[in-house]
Computed example of a mutant assay.
Amino acid sequence: MSGLPPLALDIDGTLTRPSGHGVDPRVFDPVRDWPEPVVLATGKAFPYPIALSDFLDVPHLVVAENGGVVVAGDDVHVHDAGARIDAIAEAFRERGGDLGWGDADLVNRWRETELAVRRDAPADLLRDLADEYDLAFVDTGYAYHVKPREVSKGKALDRVAAHLDLAPEDFVAVGDSENDVSTFERVDHSYAVANADEKAKAAATVVLDDAHADGTLAALDDIRANDA
């Protein structure tokens, strides 16, 4: 063992450039070279973090769709949301809503367990429909998500940790959004980057002075210093 903890890292807002979009290439080497397991935990559809794992050259340890999909080696778990996701998307459109991603909808095309909607859509309508279909509404700062209430990034981390024969509290987490709160609540130490929302900041052990990837790189430096 290296003495360093395993990591649970959000992607959007956490591994991204100062603009908040696009993975910052400066994180590639520090993440790839981290000597303990690194879990990528995101609200994106699961092909995206799988591809990022490949580009980073790290094992497939992925929490996607806000916990709806969990990938740990050969173990792929997809939460069964029933027909609710297709039904709420149809109802949203019937009541005048627009998912906002155009005809191709590359945001939802490979999404299996939840629905993502652009943040310029009518949030109140989406919240009302989420209640109607017994789903949870989450604002990640990048999109509105409607997902099963029973799934979360934190519960998904439990599954990955068990696969690795680790405890969730062994991990250190870095994130920026309310969808990271459930992860922060499970680990012993967590960092919210400076651009994080208030819920994430309130749940984190440390609120960083730096934003986006600068914050994550500062967190990794702090972890190394504390474990030296």
Rank of each mutant, 00 (worst) to 15 (best):
D180I: 10
P47I: 07
D33P: 06
P30R: 10
A200F: 08
P6K: 07
A228G: 12
A228L: 08
D105L: 13
E198S: 12
D188L: 04
D98Y: 02
N179R: 13
A162I: 05
T42A: 09
G141S: 10
L166M: 13
A87E: 13
D165Y: 00
G96T: 09
V76D: 09
A161Q: 07
D188F: 00
W101R: 06
L40G: 10
D105Q: 04
D197Q: 02
A83T: 15
I85T: 10
S2F: 11
V151N: 08
H212F: 12
A104L: 15
H79S: 14
P47K: 04
A91H: 12
A72S: 14
V187H: 09
D197E: 02
L7D: 01
E198N: 07
K153Y: 11
M1E: 12
D176P: 15
W110G: 01
R127V: 10
E114P: 00
P122S: 05
H212N: 13
E94V: 07
A64K: 12
A173N: 02
R111W: 07
I50K: 11
G67C: 11
K153T: 12
A143F: 03
V207S: 10
K44N: 15
G68A: 01
V187Q: 05
T113I: 03
P25G: 04
D176W: 12
V31N: 09
V138G: 05
I50N: 01
N179Y: 07
P25H: 03
K155L: 15
L7N: 00
A202T: 14
D227H: 14
G73C: 00
T205V: 04
H21S: 12
V27F: 05
P35A: 11
L157V: 09
R17S: 14
A219M: 00
L15W: 07
A167F: 03
V138F: 06
G43W: 13
A123T: 01
T14D: 01
D57N: 15
R224C: 08
I88F: 13
L217D: 02
H163I: 00
P35D: 04
S19Q: 01
N195F: 07
G22W: 00
A167T: 13
D128F: 03
D222E: 09
G100F: 07
I50P: 00
A156G: 07
L135F: 02
A161D: 07
P49V: 05
V31W: 09
E65R: 00
D124M: 01
W101T: 06
D188R: 14
F171M: 02
D10S: 05
D124T: 11
A203G: 14
A156E: 09
D209Q: 15
D188Q: 06
K44F: 07
E169N: 04
S177D: 08
R95V: 10
V151S: 01
Y144I: 12
G154T: 06
H163E: 09
V23N: 08
G215K: 10
E178F: 00
G43M: 11
P25N: 03
A218W: 10
D33M: 12
D29R: 15
V31G: 14
H60Y: 11
Y142S: 11
T183Q: 09
L115K: 09
G82F: 04
V146A: 03
S19V: 00
L164F: 10
E185K: 10
V117D: 04
A130Y: 05
R159G: 00
D139M: 05
I50L: 15
D105W: 02
V174W: 02
F184K: 03
